[in-house]
């Protein structure tokens, strides 16, 4: 069934479009009004982000509206781009080439095929069990022991975060929830909107009143004010969307809280990786945002937890 039959989803996508139109208009007004150099920099960055948001939202809308296949393909592409950014930064060398070829061209596509054919039993263990063992074996066959554990761990970690964790987002479509059959696309919408708007809220609150950094050594821009303000707003938003989910309002609130907390954790962890590698952004694919990993970092931890919470309780 095409999700275009779902009236609610159409309204939600229209809501996203309205939000982006508002943001674009607000950006234009700020562009006229703000004159100070530091203010200009922020406004230009915000407007660049809004433009990139249009592109991302349209891609996401097409994927969600096309039902299962579109979502699986979109997230498969996101995984490949994310893994690419991750591996580029990671300290892997010539000797790891074989293991990387397998990771890109076998493990990643296979994971998304498993999601696509709704094979939960294999999808949920393929990377933690089989890819885990396979990558180590392939590396040992390359015959180089220097930094062996580091190299193996790096590739496995890349697969776990960039492929396994992200694949949980389209995997929401394979959940069987009583009384919610054929509506799972809205669950994916719920996750992505809460995660991403939580980032936006935290950014806005941090810019407006942020004073006290949470983890100055990792990400000086993440502040307590931004964190708390962002979480309250994101939970309110998630709660107000309860009608598109199988949850009641209280459950939607708790789910949103779990999503935002995991999103925050994911963002912080991925920032620590960047710090370790001495860069500010993972790439330059998305104007104003950085690389694709800079955009989906909060989704990494939120997707698997949201998936399993939903699977256990609903």
């Amino acid at each position: 069934m095409s999700s275009f039959d779902d009236r609610e989803l159409l309204w939600l996508l229209a809501g996203v479009a309205a939000l982006l139109l508002t943001a674009t208009a607000a950006g234009q007004v700020l562009d006229r009004v703000v004159a100070t150099p530091s203010g200009r920099e922020t406004v230009d960055n915000v407007n660049a982000r809004v433009r990139a948001w249009w592109v991302m939202s349209i891609a996401f809308a097409i994927a969600v509206a096309s039902g299962g296949v579109g979502s699986v393909v979109l997230f498969a592409v996101i995984s490949l781009l994310a893994l690419r950014e991750f591996v580029t930064l990671s300290p892997t060398g010539r000797i790891d080439h074989g293991a990387l070829v397998w990771s890109f061209f076998l493990v990643t596509p296979l994971q998304y095929v498993l999601v696509g054919i709704h094979w939960y039993g294999f999808f949920s263990i393929m990377i933690p069990v089989y890819a885990f063992l396979f990558v180590t074996t392939r590396l040992v066959l390359a015959g180089e022991t220097a930094h062996f554990l580091e190299r193996a761990a790096t590739i496995q970690w890349g697969l776990m975060t960039c492929v396994y964790c992200i694949s949980y987002a389209p995997a929401l479509l394979l959940l069987d929830i009583e009384g919610y059959e054929g509506e799972n696309a809205k669950l994916l919408f719920f996750l992505v909107v809460v995660v991403q708007l939580s980032d936006v809220f935290q950014y806005v609150w941090g810019k407006l009143i942020g004073r006290h950094p949470i983890a100055p050594a990792i990400s000086p821009k993440k502040t307590w004010e931004g964190f708390l303000g962002g979480i309250v707003c994101a939970v309110l938003l998630g709660t107000s969307l309860w009608w598109i989910t199988p949850f009641n309002p209280w459950q939607a609130a708790l789910m949103s809280l779990a999503i935002t907390l995991m999103g925050f954790a994911g963002g912080l962890v991925m920032s620590a990786v960047k710090r370790d590698r001495g860069v500010k952004d993972y790439g330059s694919l998305l104007e104003g945002h950085g690389g694709i990993l800079d955009r989906v970092d909060s989704l990494l931890f939120a997707a698997p937890v949201f998936f399993h919470l939903t699977r256990f309780f609903f």
């Binding site: 690419r84 580029t88 060398g93 080439h97 990387l100 070829v101």
Partner: peptide
């Protein structure tokens, strides 16, 4: 920069890294 990691000497399949 980085092309040696995309396709090192003696390999046939490139890995899509940023370069």
């Amino acid at each position: 920069e980085n092309l040696n990691r995309v396709l090192p000497k003696g390999e046939f399949i490139p890995v899509p890294m940023l370069s």
